[in-house]
C-alpha cells in the first residue's frame, strides 16, 4: 500500500489522493458477496432447511435424550415417595423453595392467598396423597391459575416442596383461607 502522492482534487484546502483500493479489502468484499449469494440460494431457493425445520430436528433430538434419561429412573409410588420425603434436610430445602416460588400465591405460612390454604384437610385436586400433591405441582391446574412447575423445578426440588407442604398439615396458621375443595378422609 504505497502512498500515491499525487494531488487529485482539492476542496477548501483538503487535498484528495487517489490511492488504489487495498487488495485485502477488495477480497473481503468479494468473498462476502459470494458467500451471500450461495447462502441465499441454498436456504431460499434450493430447499435448505428452514428455521422451523431446524426446530423440529432439535426438539426430536431433545425428546430422544429425555426418553433415555427417564427410562432409567424407577416408577414413582406412594411408598417410594414416602421414603424419598423422609430424607434428612429435605424440609429445609422445601421451605426455601416454597418461600421463593409458592408463597406468593399460597402465603408464607401456607395459609392461602390467591391459591388455596395448604394446611387444612381440604383438597381441590385429588385427596392430598403424596402422589396427588406431586402431580399438582408438576402439572399445575392451568384453569385455576396454578402454573405447572414440572418444566421449572427439578425432581428433588419438587419432592422437597411436597414434603414441606405435607409437613405443615394441621398447622392452623393465622388468617387461614376458608376451606376449598373436598375434605380428604
Amino acid at each position: 500500500m504505497s502512498d500515491n502522492n499525487e494531488k487529485f482534487h482539492e476542496y477548501d484546502g483538503i487535498i484528495e489522493h487517489d490511492n488504489p483500493l487495498p487488495t485485502w479489502w477488495l477480497w473481503t468484499f468479494f468473498l462476502t458477496i459470494i458467500f451471500a449469494f450461495l447462502y441465499y440460494i441454498h436456504y431460499q431457493l434450493a430447499g435448505g432447511g428452514t428455521l422451523q425445520d431446524e426446530l423440529k430436528v432439535a426438539m426430536a433430538q431433545l425428546e430422544k435424550e429425555k426418553a433415555s434419561v427417564v427410562d432409567t429412573s424407577p416408577m414413582e409410588t406412594e411408598d417410594s415417595l414416602k421414603e424419598a420425603f423422609g430424607k434428612d434436610g429435605i424440609l429445609a430445602v422445601g421451605a426455601q423453595a416454597f418461600a421463593s416460588k409458592c408463597a406468593a400465591c399460597h402465603g408464607q405460612e401456607l395459609q392461602g392467598l390467591i391459591g388455596p390454604n395448604l394446611t387444612d384437610k381440604f383438597w381441590i385436586h385429588g385427596k392430598g396423597t403424596r402422589m396427588d400433591v406431586i402431580a399438582v405441582i408438576r402439572n399445575g391446574a392451568p384453569d385455576k391459575g396454578m402454573p405447572p412447575w414440572g418444566p421449572v423445578m427439578k425432581k428433588d426440588e419438587i419432592y422437597a416442596v411436597a414434603a414441606f407442604i405435607l409437613s405443615k398439615q394441621g398447622s392452623n396458621p393465622a388468617g387461614a383461607k376458608p376451606p376449598q375443595g373436598e375434605e380428604a378422609p
Binding site: E16, D18, P20
Partner: peptide, 14 residues
C-alpha cells in the same frame, strides 16, 4: 483531513 492537515487517502475508495 482538516484537523490533521493531511491528504485524503483514496478518492476511488470513497
Amino acid at each position: 483531513p482538516k484537523a490533521a492537515n493531511r491528504p485524503v487517502y483514496s478518492y476511488r475508495l470513497s
